[in-house]
Design a protein around this nucleic acid. Structure first.
Lengths: 199, 199
DNA sequence: GTCTATATTGCGATAGAC
DNA sequence: GTCTATCGCAATATAGAC
């Protein structure tokens, strides 16, 4: 087994197990056993269990940098919001473990929350807020809307679909084939509401 | 220290610490020390750490039974949804730890998820879904709306406000004084959307 | 009913062989 | 670079004194 394999296998298995049970729910014994390598490899490559967890977390949240791609100069607020929904669904599909870390860190933060997780999340909300403020300024969106509230509402709708998965998989299909329908539903609710317009 | 005090103190401290760090993030040593009782009291009163956790969880989720009070016979769908929002905010205010368990169990489920947490959550979603379906039947809500999607969206909006708290407390006030404003904002977004109606 | 003391297990980390 | 063996410690649980 080459150096790269060993390190990579630990990262992969660490991602899987930490996502399922959190930093304190997994021992490095179990971890190294699942990876098929010696227990000492965790210290050798990462410097300990917490450091391996930090490496996993860092990798998981690296995709959040892409948020800046959503806001191309001159793009309409509404299409940026739609792009955010599609990008978020895709993010969770590409990486089924991401939301576990995201939510686990928000709920039971480790010492890496402040440096890795919090900046990523608050950046997303800040970008969404700016987009919605721009929409209000352009007269597209209601003035009564508080932009931060609306951003949290939009992020909440789409993320909660995945957060609640374990308790709702008997109520609704979570298959990726439904994703385009989901985007349309959330966009419809968020922009027009559920009330039928009688004009 | 009487029997009641000792048991109660362990429950209180357990609620606090398990909420902050999860089942595996807390030891019974630390727990009993924080409660000011002997370490053996955990086994004596509850039968072990996991059993104490289960007792805490059971107590936390008992308030979910009140969901049935929201749906009085003949009440309008829209006012039930408003009552749900208000009730949910109040639930989180009355018990700042509830959402920690809620989210922690959804993300890193323990062996008690299936018996205590999942039924509570899926019942809420089921009730909301029925209310929205009734609204569609009455012609109040759009036919294009998928009732389960909309229920998850509404629950997601209001719960995510608290879930994301640690990453967003510098972006928005989380003071209880804002709660009535929040109810109005979420209701406005959910029922009418953010787009300005030009009729 | 509550304590101290202890048995036992499993943890994270590392020394040293290969 | 990877392993085995082991150290030292903290975990849960419990026996037995009061």
């Amino acid at each position: 087994m080459t150096k790269l394999d060993c390190r990579t296998r630990l990262l992969e298995v660490g991602t899987q197990l930490f996502a399922e049970r959190g930093l304190y729910g997994v021992s490095i014994r179990e971890l190294s056993q699942a990876a098929g390598v010696s227990i000492s490899m965790v210290s050798y490559y990462f410097g300990g269990k917490e450091a391996l967890y930090a490496a996993v977390l860092q990798e998981q949240f690296s995709c959040f940098d892409q948020i800046d791609n959503l806001r191309k100069p001159g793009s309409e607020p509404l299409s940026v919001l739609e792009a955010y929904l599609r990008w978020t669904l895709q993010r969770h599909r590409n990486n089924p473990h991401l939301l576990r870390f995201y939510t686990s860190e928000l709920t039971n933060p480790t010492c890496f929350f402040a440096s890795i997780v919090s900046p990523a999340i608050s950046k997303i909300i800040r970008v969404l807020t700016e987009v919605i403020e721009e929409g209000i300024r352009q007269g597209l969106f209601r003035e009564e809307i508080h932009a931060v509230n609306a951003s949290l509402a939009l992020a909440g709708m789409v993320n909660y679909f995945f957060i609640s998965l374990l308790a709702t998989e008997n109520l609704i299909s979570h298959s990726p084939e439904q994703d385009e329908l989901l985007v349309q539903q959330y966009l419809l609710i968020f922009t027009h509401g559920i009330i039928k317009q009688s004009q």
